[in-house]
Simulated assay, not measured.
Amino acid sequence: MAHGGNVIAEFTADHRELEELFARIEAQPVDHPQRRVLANRLTAELVRHSVAEEMHLCPTVRKHVRDGEELAEKELAEHVKIERLLRDLEELHVDDPQFNDIVAKLRLEVASHVREEEQELFPKLAASCSPEKLDELGRLARHTKQTARTCPHFTVPDTSPAPELLVPGAGLVDRARDLAHGRRTTG
């Protein structure tokens, strides 16, 4: 699925890319170094996606969707669980048996999160916002993902949108760290 269009299309495209990354990780032999390369890319994509959701989707859901406060808080809580798993994964070498366990747990968490968004949240958002608003949110999400951090951070609050407002250079710092460590987090 191509990126572009409204926020629902943008995040749905992200979801398909994440599913593809999980499949590529699992297709590699258990202790193959390519699993680490793919896990680094998965981490970067998940973090960028989460940042964009926290900055643009959650506030819009709170404001425009019935029971939006509850839905947004649920989104944020799921993001915290996923980022904790990403942080745990980041610490592991590919030949550590826990690496595979964390990837499996992460895939289940992400799949559940995606299913809830696509079946519950996105239809409610589409019914509550104008097409123009959804298009604007899509543009904002794409821009945010280009500059967002690429690593899980736990030095900032777990509520939105404070993490990115408090640490505006986090994306740049993460990309420099990725480069210095030889981590490939794109393409």
Rank of each mutant, 00 (worst) to 15 (best):
E90W: 11
E75V: 05
H32E: 14
H93G: 09
K105E: 14
T12C: 02
Q28I: 10
R175T: 13
I25R: 03
D135G: 01
T150V: 15
P123I: 08
A104N: 15
A162Q: 14
G5R: 09
V110I: 15
K81D: 14
E20Q: 08
T159C: 08
G5E: 05
S160T: 09
A77K: 00
H3F: 15
D135I: 02
R184N: 11
H143I: 13
V61F: 02
E116P: 00
L108K: 10
K124V: 04
E132W: 01
P33T: 01
E109L: 11
V47I: 12
R24W: 03
L85D: 11
R48Y: 05
A180R: 11
V110A: 06
Q34R: 14
R142N: 00
A162F: 12
Q34G: 01
A39E: 00
F22R: 01
R84D: 11
C129K: 04
N6I: 03
I25E: 08
R175L: 14
N100H: 15
G4L: 09
D101H: 09
E117T: 05
H79R: 06
D31N: 14
E117G: 06
I82Q: 15
F22S: 01
A52Y: 03
H49W: 02
L108F: 06
R142G: 02
F11C: 00
R48W: 08
L125E: 00
G169Q: 02
E91W: 00
D95C: 09
A127R: 08
V103L: 14
K145Y: 11
T159H: 02
E54P: 04
A39F: 01
R36V: 07
R175Y: 08
P163D: 03
D158R: 04
L71R: 11
L38E: 04
L42Y: 06
D96T: 01
S160N: 12
Q119M: 12
V7A: 07
H49N: 12
E10W: 03
R139G: 07
A180V: 06
L38M: 02
D88I: 05
E116W: 08
D174K: 07
H3E: 11
F154E: 00
H3I: 05
L179I: 06
E20N: 10
D67V: 00
L71M: 09
D31C: 12
A39M: 05
L166N: 01
V47N: 01
R36K: 15
S130R: 13
P161S: 10
H49G: 07
P123S: 04
L18W: 00
D178C: 13
